[in-house]
């Protein structure tokens, strides 16, 4: 029988082992669309974390009330409510972020991860577990899209700009693959900022993760085989 996972596991698994973007390959639309800028990606991740946390909380509170037949529309209404809250809050307090994300704030409603967590986790687990799960998935998704955005912005523009979206921090532009402002030197590849770049970066990221996993599997198999051989040899030695 399956053992109930511990609270730490519920929170930590979505960060790496069951990362919603890199392992489950869910929520790819915003992961490609808002990752031309590192800061917008972090902003998107924060809004996403808020939505998935709150919707998990409410849905797990209501899990015994919602009839099974109409559960999807109910979940969508709960999620859409929080997306509207996020839309109003971000357009008021962080208008630059809201404008840079555009329609993708509204599209959080149809993000497969939010609905997926509601369906697969919050509808069956306690409130505390669901909150931890929401937080873990939110943070896991945030770092994943931030990583993609970092690559795309640095390689695509040659610079890393901070303070453009989060206006409360001073604006700085770090020249990483280009010269300081005024010089013509730049190693940027603008393709990475275009739509094709998003597909390529995510594709290569997934391939690298698959390669690492394959390598680990191979190692584990070899180790198991060696252990088996050693055990067999020991057994043989014992018989003689």
């Amino acid at each position: 029988m399956d053992q109930k996972p511990s609270k730490a596991r519920i929170f930590l698994d979505p960060l790496f082992k069951a990362n919603p973007l890199f392992v489950m390959v869910l929520g790819t639309c915003p992961a490609l669309a808002v990752t031309t800028s590192f800061e917008s990606a972090i902003g998107m991740g924060l809004l996403f974390t808020f939505v998935v946390f709150c919707s998990n909380l409410i849905i797990s509170l209501l899990r015994k009330v919602i009839p099974d037949e109409v559960r999807t529309p109910c979940y969508i209404v709960v999620i859409a409510t929080f997306v509207t809250v996020v839309k109003i809050l971000s357009s008021t307090f962080l208008p630059e972020l809201y404008n840079s994300l555009g329609v993708f704030v509204s599209l959080l409603v149809v993000n497969c991860i939010v609905l997926g967590r509601a369906e697969a986790f919050a509808s069956q687990n306690t409130v505390v577990d669901s909150m931890l799960d929401g937080l873990g998935n939110g943070i896991g998704y945030t770092w994943a899209i931030a990583a993609i955005a970092l690559v795309r912005e640095v390689v695509g523009a040659g610079t890393l700009t901070l303070g453009k979206v989060f206006t409360f921090i001073p604006k700085v532009t770090l020249p990483i693959l280009s010269g300081y402002s005024g010089s013509d030197f730049s190693m940027a590849i603008p393709l990475f900022k275009s739509s094709a770049g998003g597909f390529l970066v995510l594709g290569f990221a997934l391939a690298i993760i698959a390669a690492v996993n394959n390598y680990k599997d191979k190692k584990a198999k070899e180790k198991a085989r060696a252990a088996k051989a050693a055990a067999a040899a020991a057994a043989k030695g014992g018989n003689q």
């Binding site: 770049g197 597909f199 995510l202 594709g203 290569f204 997934l206 391939a207 390669a211 394959n214």
Partner: peptide
């Protein structure tokens, strides 16, 4: 290559298609 099978190569193909459409 084994690591590219499935979704990764699909995304890369999509990227190349995006370049064509650009």
């Amino acid at each position: 290559p084994k690591a590219f099978k499935g979704v990764p190569i699909a995304l890369i193909v999509a990227g190349i298609m995006a370049i064509v459409f650009m």
